[in-house]
């Protein structure tokens, strides 16, 4: 049943231009971050690592969480329109499958964006004339960043499930991203869901160790994803739908 619901999600997204946003969005910090790096190359002497900070610093805190928020709102929008919750909730489909299909769709988009980020980073580094070998940690940054992104997907999907407005969850994601920056500065980055993305991507210190151990990072991420799943399933099971 899960694969059917997942296929249904994919069909809903088939002609949607949503991928375009995730395609264009990483290009902007790459172009501007690279320009900024080239302007300040005498201060930023850590080659690939300095370039990485220029690419990811603002994006991780202020922009990627709201963009994920937009995507999650979009995934739930069809259900919120035209009394569709009535049709969805009376279909013989477990509610967990409904949520999982949306979560996997959003996670796939995050993963693809991370791959695109990696490709752009390598291209811009080569164009900048960085002769040092590409950091071996790059795959780890991208993968951990994707896990942090999936945590945000899980939470944003919960918000978009019970907030019927398209825009409000996006505003909450921005507040979450700013909260993530504060949590990082206070040393609690590894415990706050919206800062896990930047912790995973090592946005402010790529050459050093992560703010927490990898095991802790994975465990905290799994905890938040599980919390999101449990909340969403309970919400869908217990609450009567509001269709309109």
């Amino acid at each position: 049943m899960f694969f059917r619901t997942f296929r249904a999600e994919q069909m809903k997204m088939q002609h949607s231009p949503v991928w375009l946003a995730f395609f264009i969005f990483p290009i902007l910090p790459v172009v501007m971050g690279t320009f900024n790096y080239l302007q300040n190359v005498d201060i930023l002497q850590d080659a690939w690592y300095s370039l990485w900070t220029q690419h990811t610093l603002f994006t991780c805190y202020f922009f990627f969480p709201p963009l994920i928020g937009v995507y999650c709102s979009y995934l739930c929008r069809l259900e919120h329109l035209n009394h569709n919750w009535n049709a969805v909730m009376t279909a013989p489909v477990p509610v967990a499958d409904l949520y999982f299909s949306k979560l996997i769709s959003a996670s796939m988009m995050v993963l693809l964006t991370q791959v695109w980020n990696g490709i752009l980073f390598i291209i811009s580094g080569k164009l900048c004339g960085l002769n040092a070998p590409i950091p071996t940690e790059l795959a780890g940054w991208l993968l951990c960043g994707a896990l942090g992104g999936i945590v945000i997907c899980a939470l944003q999907l919960c918000l978009s499930l019970f907030i019927r407005s398209f825009a409000v969850p996006v505003g909450i994601a921005l507040i979450g991203g700013i909260g993530g920056l504060v949590a990082m500065a206070k040393g609690y980055g590894a415990w706050f869901p919206y800062s896990l993305l930047s912790v995973g991507m090592r946005a402010n210190q790529p050459s050093g160790a992560m703010q927490c151990g990898t095991e802790q990072f994975v465990l905290v991420s799994c905890f938040y994803v599980t919390a999101g799943v449990v909340f969403a399933v309970l919400w869908l099971k217990k609450r009567d739908v509001v269709a309109g």
Partner: peptide
């Protein structure tokens, strides 16, 4: 009708505006 368009355009503009402060 798709509000994703306006919100995404807004986010991309904001990101560009923030980076432009360093230009």
């Amino acid at each position: 009708q798709n509000q994703m368009v306006s919100l995404t355009a807004g986010l991309i503009g904001t990101l560009a505006g923030l980076y432009l402060m360093f230009f």
